[in-house]
C-alpha cells in the first residue's frame, strides 16, 4: 500500500529538533576547532546544567530556593565550572597524549557526570518546566511552543556570534593558533593553558545553554538524558555541516533533524525499524566519503 508522503508537519518539527542538535553541535565544533578532539562529555555538561537549574529552583539540599532566572544563571555557572574542571583535571594532564586517549577520557567524564547526577537525583526522570511557557501556534497537526522558538533564535544568535568570535577577535584567533601550533603560539606570548581553560569553559557554557533549553522543551531531565537524546545526532550534524564550521553546525543540525523526522514518519516500522538511526548512519557515511570536510567546512 502506498501512502501519501507525510512532509510538512515532520519537516517543521524536524527542523526544530535539528536546532537542538545544532545547539549541542556548536560546543562540539568549538572543541574540535580548538583541541582537535571529539568531546563525548558535551551533552552531559548540558544535563548537569539542567539538573542544577532544577535543584536551585526547588531549593534542594543546601541550595536556597532561587527564582527561575537566577536558577538558570546558577545552572550556566555549573556547566561552565564543569568545563573548566574537566580541562584542569583531565585535559591538561593529557595535553601531549594521543587524541584517541583524550577522546576516551571525555567518554569517562560522561560516565562520571551521569553517575554523579544519579547520586543526586536517582534514575527516575524529574519534571522540568519550560522556561518560556505557551505556544506560538498550534494547528492540531503542527505545534510550535515558545520554548522551541527561543531555541531556534538562540541557536542562530550563538552560531553567528561564535563565528564572529573566531574570525574577528584576538582571543578567537589565539584559540585557532593554539590548536594549529601550540609551541609557536606560546613563543609569541599566548598562554596555551589559559586558552585551553577558556575554550573548555566556553564549551561548558554552550553545553549548559543547550541542556537547559532542551530539557525544558522535552519537559524532563534524567541522568544522561541529553547524551541519549541528542549527542549522536549532534555529532552527525556537526560532521555533516563541517566539523570546523560553526554556521555548519547550525545548517547540519537542521538538515539532519528534517531528514530524520521525514524518515521516521514515512518509513513504516515493520519495513525498517529504527529508520531515524539508519538515516543518521547513512548521512554520516556519505558525507565522510564524498566530502569529509562537511557542507561548510574547510581543512583548517
Amino acid at each position: 500500500m502506498l501512502m501519501a508522503l507525510d512532509v510538512v508537519a515532520p519537516a517543521l518539527s524536524g527542523a526544530i529538533q535539528g536546532a537542538v542538535y545544532g545547539l549541542l553541535g556548536l560546543g562540539l565544533v568549538l572543541l574540535y576547532k580548538s583541541n582537535r578532539v571529539f568531546n563525548f562529555a558535551q551533552a552531559e555538561f548540558g544535563t548537569s546544567a539542567a539538573f542544577a537549574v532544577l535543584f536551585a529552583d526547588n531549593g534542594t539540599g543546601p541550595l536556597p530556593n532561587l527564582p527561575l532566572p537566577l536558577a538558570v544563571v546558577f545552572g550556566l555557572l555549573v556547566a561552565t565550572g564543569l568545563g573548566l574542571l574537566t580541562e584542569r583535571l583531565v585535559v591538561r594532564p593529557l595535553f601531549s597524549a594521543p587524541k584517541v586517549t583524550l577522546v576516551v577520557a571525555t567518554a569517562g567524564v560522561t560516565l562520571l557526570l551521569i553517575s554523579v547526577q544519579g547520586f543526586l537525583a536517582g534514575a527516575e526522570p524529574s519534571v522540568l518546566q519550560p522556561l518560556f511557557a505557551g505556544d506560538v501556534f498550534d494547528t492540531g497537526s503542527v505545534r510550535v511552543t515558545r520554548q522551541q522558538l527561543v531555541i531556534v533564535l538562540v541557536l542562530v544568535v550563538l552560531a553567528a556570534a561564535s563565528a564572529l568570535f573566531f574570525s574577528r577577535t584576538r582571543t578567537g584567533t589565539a584559540i585557532i593558533a593554539v590548536s594549529q601550533e601550540p609551541t609557536a603560539t606560546s613563543l609569541v606570548g599566548i598562554s596555551v593553558t589559559r586558552t585551553s581553560s577558556l575554550t573548555w569553559g566556553l564549551a561548558g557554557l554552550l553545553g549548559g545553554i543547550a541542556g537547559i533549553l532542551l530539557s525544558g522543551s522535552t519537559g524532563f531531565v534524567s541522568p544522561g538524558s541529553l547524551t541519549g537524546l541528542a549527542l549522536i545526532p549532534a555529532f552527525t550534524a556537526a560532521v555533516f555541516g563541517g566539523i570546523t564550521s560553526l554556521p555548519g553546525a547550525f545548517l547540519g543540525g537542521v538538515v539532519i533533524g528534517v531528514v530524520e523526522a521525514l524518515a521516521q514518519s514515512n518509513i513504516p516500522k515493520d519495513v525498517l525499524p529504527g529508520s531515524g538511526r539508519v538515516v543518521l548512519f547513512v548521512a554520516l557515511l556519505s558525507v565522510l566519503l564524498i566530502r569529509p570536510a562537511g557542507l561548510l567546512g574547510k581543512e583548517a
Binding site: 583531565v90 560516565l111 553517575s115 544519579g118 541522568p223
Partner: peptide, 25 residues
C-alpha cells in the same frame, strides 16, 4: 536514605569512570 540508594545504584558506573580516568591520567 534516598540518596544512599541512588549512590548504590550508580556505584558501579562511577567506579568504572573513576578507574578509567585514573588509568588514563
Amino acid at each position: 536514605a534516598g540518596t544512599e540508594a541512588n549512590i548504590i545504584q550508580f556505584f558501579p558506573q562511577a567506579l568504572g569512570a573513576l578507574l578509567l580516568l585514573l588509568t588514563l591520567v
